[in-house]
Design a binder for these strands. Structure first.
Lengths: 268, 268
DNA sequence: ATAATAGTGTCTCTCAGACATTATGTG
DNA sequence: CACATAATGTCTGAGAGACACTATTAT
């Protein structure tokens, strides 16, 4: 760094630059009982006290400055009691979703929110903590989301701020990522069966898949799953042979991809 | 809003919440002479004065609060002299890329940068303005980007901050989007020929495509292009029949997609 | 004339989807 | 036993890629 740059830095006051606040919000998804669930917290403070919202909060910017993904995990842990480094959040997959910064999206002030998307295997029930008055896994089907990202009237859990839109974007991202990445395995235990994997796809895409074709297709994609050589100790609840067990393979992209059936509507 | 919420808002000081500054940076791409170019500006002030960087700057957060895409277009216009509402930037396609917020990415202070990706048809040379000492379309091939998003040593135009990484992410996004969206048409004039469209794909993907197969494929995707019924008045520079002219169609997604050949390396 | 190009046709291989079949478990 | 399920097999049609061919233009 040059001399003039050091001088410059000393005379620099960040607050001259019209600062805004930055938050992270997390769309955490999991599968429970064959249904896709999202982690929601009930807000303990204004604004929107009492409403349900995505877990999230302010990024520590200067004091104890933290990276954005770290902030996402911290807020997730604080508000839901799920411990981060060891325990439930250990095997979580986290990726950035997108950033929401429309003026007026928060009534307090100008807030830019960086949204993250998390995929988790089945986790225990959360416990409210931090600013949250309550926390719970909620079936996304009961939130009445429209294609436009709004909530249908009469929905029991109305989401605060623009969180319905963020959730909607997160769901679409999740649906798309199942097509061309092995991310569905992030919803499964370390060892899983092909029918379990199919249940993940069916829950996220919201439509039933042909069991036979799905099976053959998964095994034909190089690196998607690898055999453990073992067999599950229990069959399906309605009988049938005991399925074989698999692990996630080393592929980062699925080729060929597993495309969703019937998306003619979305093309135009 | 309840009584207590109004009280709450009045007692609220945003600066209690450890504010950070937010910038937008723009990866603006275009095709010139069959080669992919990115718009760069040379920094007029510290830090990194004299180095090349992506156009961008601080978001107006509170006074004249602006939406993030508006900030991106404004910075683009200010630093390059390309006028926004009418003129060169009129037909530009803009989308959010991702957000970069690692502590220390800017030596001044904690800065969160929301990066945007812009696709433009061939534009005039920019003129430096605002904080920029210079501005120019630069062939991305000469920036020596590695797969990891770094720049090879000896590259003439070293990029400031983490802009090499941002550019690298933007290029990968552009390459991927050509596969399943009709975005290549955003690089073309309102009326274009199939060989021109193919030149866009070849420039962005960096590999030659089979002319015959590409032609048939583009026409077979519903809504990708629609015929104007007219024919170009000039042939290719080395002869051949005069190609027919097409417009962008109404498809938002390409089905089936035009997949890149030979990406075996990227799968694992 | 030579060479490059636009556009179309043909062939093969892969893959998705519909359907069938067999073995194996539950109730 | 009746029935659902795991896993595999078969068939068909769509599509990608390789190659060939004709017509048209620049040099």
């Amino acid at each position: 760094m040059t001399e003039s740059e050091s001088e410059f830095l000393e005379s620099y006051d960040p607050r001259d630059y019209d600062p805004v606040s930055v938050t992270v919000d997390v769309v955490a998804l999991t599968i429970r009982d064959g249904e896709l669930h999202v982690l929601l917290v009930r807000r303990g403070h204004a604004p929107h006290a009492g409403m349900w919202a995505l877990p999230g909060g302010f990024v520590r910017g200067v004091r104890d400055a933290e990276d954005l993904p770290d902030a996402a995990v911290r807020e997730l842990a604080e508000e839901t009691g799920l411990s981060a480094k060891q325990g439930p959040l250990e095997r979580i997959h986290l990726e950035q979703l997108r950033t929401y910064g429309k003026p007026g999206r928060d009534p307090r002030m100008r807030i830019i929110s960086v949204a993250y998307l998390a995929f988790a295997p089945e986790l225990p029930d959360p416990e409210a903590g931090g600013d949250a008055a309550d926390a719970a896994w909620t079936p996304v089907g009961r939130l009445g989301l429209t294609d436009g990202g709004d909530q249908a009237p009469g929905t029991t859990r109305r989401l605060a701020f623009d969180h319905a839109r963020i959730l909607s974007d997160g769901l679409e991202r999740a649906r798309a990522k199942l097509e061309y990445t092995p991310l569905a395995t992030a919803f499964c235990a370390p060892e899983f069966t092909i029918p379990e994997l199919r249940a993940v796809y069916e829950a996220v895409w919201g439509e039933e898949l042909h069991a036979g074709n799905f099976h053959r297709k998964v095994l034909s994609v190089p690196g998607f799953v690898e055999s453990t050589g073992t067999t599950s100790d229990k069959a399906g609840r309605k009988g049938g042979p005991r399925p074989k067990l698999y692990r996630a393979g080393d592929a980062r992209l699925l080729h060929p991809a597993l495309l969703r059936p019937s998306r003619e509507e979305e093309i135009r």
